[in-house]
Simulated assay, not measured.
Amino acid sequence: MIKFLVNCLVFVIDKLYKKRPYARFYVLETVARVPYFSFVSVLHLYETLGIWRKAEWLKVHFAQAWNEYHHLLIMESLGGNRRFIDRFLARFTALIYYWVIVFLYMLSPRHAYYFSQLVEEHAYHTYDNFLRRNARLLKQLPAPIVAINYYRDGDLYMFDEFQTSRRPFERRPVINNLYDVFVCIRDDEKEHVTTAIACQHPQAQTTFKSPHAAYIITLKASAADTQREAVG
């Protein structure tokens, strides 16, 4: 059922925007960030009701939404939202999608994360195909300022925080042209897939950590080992 819903969404977007990639990416990014809004909303609700408190999950999902938000800003800077019909379709779809994921997350977080995984996998392959087909042209075009500020010159704490398969500071993109920007976006989508898979792990409720939290734990453990060796 989940695959069917994702395939329907993908089919509609792909058919409508086959010849307009930036508009297609604008719609895709508007929709792609919605699950993280849904996750955070439900987690806040559960915290308010005293059901559970998952600060690490909130941090990571907010960082994911922040990342997708900048993808959206990049597509807007490229003119992807120029037409009213594209903005309307993207926002209307996002509104429905938000509530679908909210209820799905309340019923089964694992299935909600699987839904998100499928959407992000599609996004990854979409950008990868776009890069392979348009590499020469993209390398001749300048990178949008918003991309430079997010990936290179800005505060990269939030950029690190959604990549649960990596240590903080490990990934630092090079941005010289529009091709580099789309490489970053494609690779971001892969990181979202990895994080969605990690959230589906049976022990995730007790073991899941944000990258910075996991890094601090590692540093403390290393320092403790060093101290024991010095004492011994």
Rank of each mutant, 00 (worst) to 15 (best):
N7S: 04
L138D: 06
Y26I: 14
K19C: 00
Q205H: 13
D180K: 02
V42N: 04
H122I: 02
L73A: 10
L43S: 13
R186Y: 01
K15V: 03
Y157L: 13
E170K: 13
A204P: 10
I51E: 07
L58T: 07
A198T: 04
R166V: 02
Y150A: 01
N176F: 10
E121P: 04
W99P: 00
C184K: 08
V40S: 10
I148N: 03
S38V: 14
L141N: 10
T226H: 11
P142N: 11
G79W: 06
F115L: 09
T93H: 00
Q227T: 06
I96W: 08
E47F: 11
E76S: 05
V12D: 10
H44T: 12
F169C: 05
N176H: 15
E29G: 03
Q205K: 11
D153Q: 13
I51K: 13
F39Q: 14
E120K: 07
Y151K: 06
S108Y: 00
K220E: 04
F84R: 09
L131R: 12
G232M: 05
E121L: 07
R171S: 02
A65V: 02
Y127E: 00
G232F: 12
R82I: 09
V34H: 02
F103V: 00
L49G: 12
V102Y: 00
A230Y: 14
R20Y: 13
G232I: 05
Y26Q: 11
A32M: 08
P35D: 09
H71G: 01
A123W: 01
Q64T: 05
I148M: 01
R166C: 06
Y69C: 05
R166Y: 10
C184E: 06
D153G: 05
L16V: 02
D14E: 15
R83M: 03
T48A: 15
M75R: 05
Y151R: 04
L141H: 10
T93E: 00
A63I: 02
Q227I: 11
A123K: 03
T195Q: 14
R136E: 11
L178F: 01
E47V: 06
L73V: 09
V6L: 02
F182R: 08
K209I: 05
P142H: 09
Y114A: 00
D153L: 12
P142W: 08
Q163R: 13
G80D: 04
K15T: 07
L156A: 07
L58R: 06
H111Q: 11
I148Q: 05
P168I: 05
V174C: 06
R132E: 07
A32R: 14
H71D: 06
S222G: 06
I74N: 01
R24L: 05
P144A: 08
I175E: 12
L16K: 11
E29S: 02
P144K: 02
F115M: 03
T30E: 09
A224W: 00
Y151Q: 08
S222Q: 15
K220W: 01
V34M: 12
Q205R: 08
S222P: 07
K190D: 02
E56L: 03
C184A: 12
F182E: 04
I2Q: 00
E191R: 11
L78F: 11
T195S: 10
Y26G: 09
Q205N: 15
Y17N: 07
F115E: 00
